[in-house]
Every structure is written in structure tokens, then in C-alpha cells.
Amino acid sequence: MSQVIQIFMSGLAEGCIYALVALGFVLIYKATEMVNFAQGDLMMLGAFVGYFLIVGLGANYWIALVGAVVIMAVFSYALDVFVLRRVIGQPQFAVVMLTIGLGFVFRAAASMIWGANPLAFVTPFTDGTTSIGGAPIPDVSLSIVAGTAVLCGLLFALFQYTPVGVAMQAASQNQLAAYYMGIPVKRIFALIWAISGGVAAVAGILLAPLTLIDTSIGFLGLKAFAAAVLGGFGSIPGALAGGIAIGLIEQFSGVYLMDGFKDIAAYVVLLLVLFVRPQGLFGAAARKRV
């Protein structure tokens, strides 16, 4: 029993990271209909910025967390203003290539600044454990789950109860009408990029004690992309559920199935779900009415 709890918690923690990255995908896609393949690499940069603040400047973990979120939010805002806004209206293909290219640039830049060797920083959660149901659970896993929950709560409140959040929803649902209302749509989209960058930074810093930080952790974005598709691309609850589902499936199949299944199980499930529900778990089929 305690083993099941342990596997469940580590799957949940892993899944929360996928969920946060998938959330970044979905936020940007819903607003601008762009798929940002550099989302995983934004997470990577967020982790490195956290490393820089904690190890390089000796900042307190919590201050570094907030600092990294702010830095990544500003960075993503600028990324939209100076780069991505220019490809709006170009073929989807151009956007895909551009964001994949940005991913390469980010990885190259990170390895130039911080080197190619894996790095680590100490967090308040490193090495601690808490007992749940008789099973020792690493504090790192708990911190990831709690951090994800808090962040989702904050985002929910932002989107539901603040005028700028409702305007973000409005601009995502009907861009033209938002323009007619005098909503500054371009700035709203840049703010959504900023939120995605901030979420990526949180994901990177929460993930850091679980793995080491190196330039390749951004490839986790591929599994997060699968999570977003599983949930129905364009659905925020779907992204969260899809991420957690993939995290759990991976951990359980890694323990109970043969070697090698861990890496493919998530995709097998994704394929099966898409056979049955092509729009994903939470997606609505044919939403656009003419």
C-alpha cells in the first residue's frame, strides 16, 4: 500500500510539471492560435534564472522564485512584442518553425552562459520527507503539487475576477469583438505570453530539485504537449488533467510493466484516447459557429 502511495505521489508531482508546461501551451494557443514549441525551453530558462539568483546572487529561495517569475514574464512579454507579434497572419508553418528555432536559440544561449554541465541549487524541500499514510514522501514532490495548486488558484482568480483577466478571456474568445470594445488586444496577448513565461519559470524552479538543471530539460515539453493534446488542446482544465494523467501513467507503468514501457505508455494512452475522443478529454468538437 505504501508503495502505491509513493508511486502515486511521484506520478502526481511529475504530472504537475507536465500540467504547468501544458498550461503554457494552451494559454498561448487559446489566445493567439499559435503553438509555442519553445514552451519547454522557457521552463528551462526559468530554472537557470532561478539557479542564477540563488547560487549566483545568493538570494533566498522564495525571493528567487518571485524574481525568476518576474524576469521570465518580462522576457516573454518582450518576446511577443519584438518577435512573435510579427508572424501573426503568416501561415501556421512559419509560426511552428519560428518557435522551434527559438527553442534552439534558448538552449544554445543557456549552454553558453551556464555551461553544458548539470547544475543544482538547494531548496527548502531538498532531502526532506513527510509521511503520508505510512509512506515516506519526498518534500520535493509535495512542494510541486502544492505549488501547482496555488498557482492554478491564482490564475483562476485572475481570469475570473479581475477586469484584465476577463478581458484576456474575451480577447481569446472573440478577438474582433474585443477590438470593437476598445480592449487593447495586442497588449492583452503580450500579457498572456508574460503569464505563460511566469508559469514556465515556476515549473522550472519546482522541477529543479527533482532532476538536475541542464539545457535539455526543455524536452520535457514534448510530453507536456502530449498532455495538452490529451486534455483537448485549448482547454485549461484539460491541460491540467492531461498532464497529471500522463505523469501518473508514466510512474505506474514504469513500476508495474516491463522495462521501456515507462517512456511509451503515455503515448499509447494518448493514441487510445484520440481514437475514442478525437477532440481530447475536455475538448469541445467544432466549437466555432459561422
Binding site: A178, Y180, G182
Partner: peptide
């Protein structure tokens, strides 16, 4: 061209956003 997933009240308040 209403905002389909917002409530009526939220739609109206969006009209006053600017």
C-alpha cells in the same frame, strides 16, 4: 460577435473596459 463563454454581465462589463 458576443463573447460566447462569458456571462451576460461580463460581456456588458467588457463594453466598459476602455
Amino acid at each position: 460577435e458576443t463573447f460566447p463563454y462569458l456571462t451576460v454581465r461580463q460581456n456588458l462589463l467588457m463594453g466598459a473596459y476602455a
